[in-house]
Amino acid sequence: MRVRKRDNNFIERSIMGALCFLKGSVFSDEYASRPGFLQSLDPRIKFITFIIFILAVLFTKSIAVSFVFYILCLALAYFSKIDLVFFLKRTWIFIPLFSLFIAIPALFSVFSPGEAIFSFRVVNLNFIITRQGLYGASLFVARVIASVSFAVLLSITTKHFELLKVLRVVRVPQVFVMVLGMCYRYIYLFIEVVENTYMAIKSRVGRRIDYKKGQHMVAWSMASLWYRSYQLNEAVYGAMLSRGYRGEPVISHDFKAGPKDWVWLVLVTFISGALLYCGGLWKFNII
């Protein structure tokens, strides 16, 4: 009995946790709404400058330069009134995911032959860590740290619908941008539907649900959600037609770039170029 009860709690915690995470991460504009340096920039310019930063991080061959970029990113977060503990937590969730699985094998001589600096044996297998492997893996991790941090910083200092509209800058078709915007709008609605459906089931059947019945309910809820989304799809299309939609949507993008934005763009280009240049020197002359 106790096991069954715990199982149900686990399901409840999972559903509510997932919904809460979605609402909190995808739909929260808490930091993007704060007055801060990055928040005050034109989203298009901000997007372009962050792409420049990320490209510079990817092209640098120097670990030191990657860390300079990372420190720059942390400084930008600080000046944009982002809680650094929150920011570090948010970025370091992704960093091991994106880096460790690739970086660890690269340490060893099998993938990175070269000068051995450390070796150990596991079940008659000799593992050798090479200087080149260590450097390659460190560079890779440093790049991931900096680029993931820039990507996260961009996403938390920009309202999500603005990010979608910025896609127009990179010539993503208008209709695609609009569909993404609508997805963003209606995912929230369906999160609420899922939440309310679960609460309705819970209020009527209590916590303990027979396994078979539970399966049946989940299947029924999925079917019901699909049907609701289908109905909504038709109704929304009707609402669009009613207000002049004729297959080619026209959506507003009232971004305005001011002198501050252009100065920022020039500055970022200059800083990135200079760091890349220095990285080249450090790579070949110092490290």
Partner: peptide, 18 residues
Amino acid sequence: VQLFCPTVKEEVMFGPLN
């Protein structure tokens, strides 16, 4: 059903723009 745009401003301006 009617509010399909991500923000109120886009929503209200959808008609005139289209």
